[in-house]
Design a protein around this nucleic acid. Structure first.
Lengths: 241, 241
DNA sequence: TGATCCGTGGCACTGGGTGCAGCGAACGGA
DNA sequence: TCCGTTCGCTGCACCCAGTGCCACGGATCA
């Protein structure tokens, strides 16, 4: 896909003013200025390249489609997430791990609050951008699900559970992220995301907890009548454990 | 959006050969023949209308985009789902209700197994179609979430729970649906969907179950040591209850 | 019979996206 | 210093999806 947008670094210590092509950033800036001014669909690629002062052909060298200029950093973030999951410890709690992976996305949004809020208002209005965003989110979800499948694949319904957990974690994350974006970036983003992910984690529980020895005070007994709603029982146990 | 693709019916009993325009079906048939033959992207709208023997302008009269011809019945199915949720009884278990709503989608796929399998193979290969399918699935998910928000909105984290449950139910449904599609429609679709949805339902529990009287044999006792993975305890209870 | 409505088709146009070829600057070797 | 290569950028021509507009023709109705 598009080239990495990682920060420009030099092997030697020299700062080397902008080795990374400024054209990419210039295109993003020009595009967003016009998108905000007159709307996404009312802005043509020709308008963007004219404002940025570059050739039309160069636009499509940096962004495979007009929609990609709206999400210039997701490719890198997705790669980060996959790398993060790939280097997971063997004994890590899988659910917790995917929650942490989801936090990477939130962190990317939080790095540029103003930009993220602008983009949110764009994607909210333009169906085409919403569809594009869905395909991006879907790739995050598949990355999480792939990791979970690897971890839960052996158990009964492991694949099913992996898919459901991934979807739930993404939904919880997006719920918090969206309410933060709706607040124009004023709310405490981290707290809301933590709360939402904690809920998701609590629903699916922890998988790897050291058992140790069994002392009497470590045993919990729960009694319930048949037909009791499972979630009620679950809540009792959750607090007890 | 596009007009309903319900079967042509007459108020009087007469069969009245095809009052519903056959053009729509002709376009779908021509499109799929060419899509299967030479691929989606290698087929132009001109090719389709030439094979169907109609004007190019008419294609876009029936389908707002080339992608829509691949999903000719989702608009109707989405309307069915919204109607189904709208006429839910007040005291219905919300989670069970959205599971039943999800079954409507599966039923639509199962009505035309051959067609569904063909479409599956198309969407698997073509990124554009996959993106379109995601936006369709997203609309289903939002319909479920909207219903759940109405039912759970009052409770703490009701909105969050609604979003997460909707995502989980959709993921469970899609998991079963996809494995059925991968089997070329040979597996028992209904059983797999039921199993997957039962899992989703068990995770989030039933909300409304009549308690009735308590007989000794109706009481279940579960003992667990502190630190036991919640999912293990949950599984025990699930089988016991 | 004439007016109207509606489904249809033809046509021209916009705009996203691509393949290709040329051009100039930077780089490396003789 | 000069030359050949490479690479990034540009312009051009082209394809195709999607739209607005209008004209045609059949069916319906006054």
């Amino acid at each position: 896909m598009s080239t990495s947008s990682a920060a420009p670094r030099r092997e030697d210590g020299t700062e080397a003013a902008e080795v990374r092509p400024p054209m990419r950033e210039a295109l993003v800036a020009a595009a967003f200025r016009l998108f905000i001014e007159r709307g996404y669909e009312q802005t043509t690629v020709d308008d963007i390249v004219a404002l940025a002062g570059v050739g039309r052909r160069s636009f499509f060298r940096y962004f495979p489609s007009k929609e990609d200029v709206v999400f210039p950093d997701h490719e890198r973030c997705l790669a980060d997430m996959e790398a993060f999951l790939a280097r997971s410890p063997e004994d890590a709690d899988p659910v917790r791990r995917v929650c942490d992976a989801a936090r990477l996305v939130h962190r990317m949004y939080a790095e540029n609050p103003a930009f993220s809020v602008q983009r949110y208002h764009l994607t909210k209005k333009v169906p085409g951008l919403r569809a594009y965003e869905l395909s991006v989110v879907w790739r995050y979800e598949r990355a999480l699900a792939a990791y979970l499948r690897g971890r839960l694949g052996g158990r009964p319904d492991g694949i099913l559970r992996a898919d459901v957990i991934a979807a739930a974690v993404v939904a919880a994350h997006n719920n918090a992220l969206r309410s933060w974006l709706r607040s124009d970036g004023r709310d405490d983003a981290g707290a809301a995301v933590d709360h939402a992910l904690a809920y998701a984690q609590s629903v699916f529980g922890d998988v790897a907890v050291p058992p140790r020895g069994v002392a009497p005070e470590d045993v919990v007994v729960v009694a319930a009548r048949r037909g009791t709603p499972l979630w009620q029982v679950l809540r009792e146990i959750e607090t007890a454990l």
